[in-house]
Write a protein that binds this DNA or RNA. Sequence first.
DNA 1: TTGAAATGAGACACAGATGTATCACCCAGT
DNA 2: ACTGGGTGATACATCTGTGTCTCATTTCAA
Lengths: 183, 183
Amino acid sequence: MSVDRTQVLRTAAALLSRKATATMDEVARAAGIGRATLHRHFAGRDALVRALEQMCIEEAEAALDTARIEEGPADEAVRRLVAASEPAAPLLAFLVTENQLFEGEGQNEGWARLDARLVALFRRGQEEGTFRIDLSPAWLCEAFYGLIGSGAWAVADGRVAANDFSYMIAELLLGGARRSVEK
Amino acid sequence: MSVDRTQVLRTAAALLSRKATATMDEVARAAGIGRATLHRHFAGRDALVRALEQMCIEEAEAALDTARIEEGPADEAVRRLVAASEPAAPLLAFLVTENQLFEGEGQNEGWARLDARLVALFRRGQEEGTFRIDLSPAWLCEAFYGLIGSGAWAVADGRVAANDFSYMIAELLLGGARRSVEK
DNA sequence: TTGAAATGAGACACAGATGTATCACCCAGT
DNA sequence: ACTGGGTGATACATCTGTGTCTCATTTCAA
C-alpha cells in the first residue's frame, strides 16, 4: 500500500507540535510507517520540516482565501480567519517556534506573503476605524500567531475545549479581556 | 574571574528562546565562556534547563509580588503585572514551548503556583465585573503566557520596539484590537 | 611575588540520531 | 501462479552532541 504523504505530514505536525525534538523514528511510528519508508519520502529531517512548512503556508493561505479577508468589516474578517485557521493551528504552533532554526538562510518567502496579507488586513481595519491605531499592525499580526499557537496548545492539552478554540481566540484578539459597554 | 551564574542563565535564555535546539557549546559561546566551564556550573543540558525553569519561576513570582496583583482593580493589576514580567519575558518565551518536553515526569510545582495565582487574578476580575465572563480564566492565563512570549520574540527580532512591549501586550490582552467607545 | 582557584582549550569515549543499503515480505495487476 | 513495486525490518557506518578528563593559562587574593 502506498503511503499517504499528506496524512504522514499531518501526523508529524501533530507530534512535533507537542514534542519538537521527536526522532525521525518516532515520527515514523506515529504515522504508522517504518523509518525507512519515511526516509524514502523525505530525504531527511530538514526536508520533512520544509515539507511541513510548505504545507502550513498552503493551508494558511487557503484559510486567508476562504475567509475572504478583503471583504466586509475587518473584525468580521478576523473572526472568519480565525475559524478558517483552526485546521492549520497545530502546524502553525509548531512552525512559529521552529522557524528560528533557519536563521540567516533562505526563509520560505511564503511567510512574507502571509505576513503581508495579515498586516494589510489589520491596517485596513485601522483605516476603516474598526481597529485602534495605537497597536501596530505588525504587533497585531504577531499576536494573531501567538494566540493561534496558544490556543492550539491549550486545546491539545485539554485546558480549553476544542469547540471554544475559535471563539476564545477571536474574542480575545478583537475585544480583549476587559468588559466593554459595546458587548 | 568567576562566572556570573545569573548572567549565564540570562544569556542562555535569550539564545534558547530563539533557537531551542542550541548546543551546549553554542550556549557557552553566547555566554562568553568555555563549554567546560558551562559544564562545571550545570551538570548537563537537563540541569541547565531546570535551572532556567527555577529562575523563571522565581522571577515570575517576584513579578506577581511586585505587581501586587491582589490590590486594586483587576485590569490595573494586569497592567502592572505585564510591566513587571518584562524582565522574565525571554525566559518565559523559551520555557512555555519547552515545557512540553517534560511530559509525564515531575513538573516543577512552581508552574502550578503561578497558574493558580494568575487564574485567581482573572477570576477576581470577572467577579468584580471588570473582565468578561465568557472567556475562561484558564484561557486568559494561557493567552497571557502566549502574548508575553510573542512580545518577547517580536522585540528580540526587532519587529516591535522594546519600549512598546508592556503597552502592546497589556492593551491587547485587556482591550483587544477593536476600537472601543471606552477608550 | 606567590599560590590557590577558576577558566579555556583540547582530547577522548560514549550515546543517540541519522542516512544508506540490503533482504524478505505483502499485495496488486497481469 | 507470476511478477514487480512498495514496504517493514534490520544492519551498518557516520555524524553530532554530550559528559569527562587533563593541562596550560589566567586571575585574584594573600
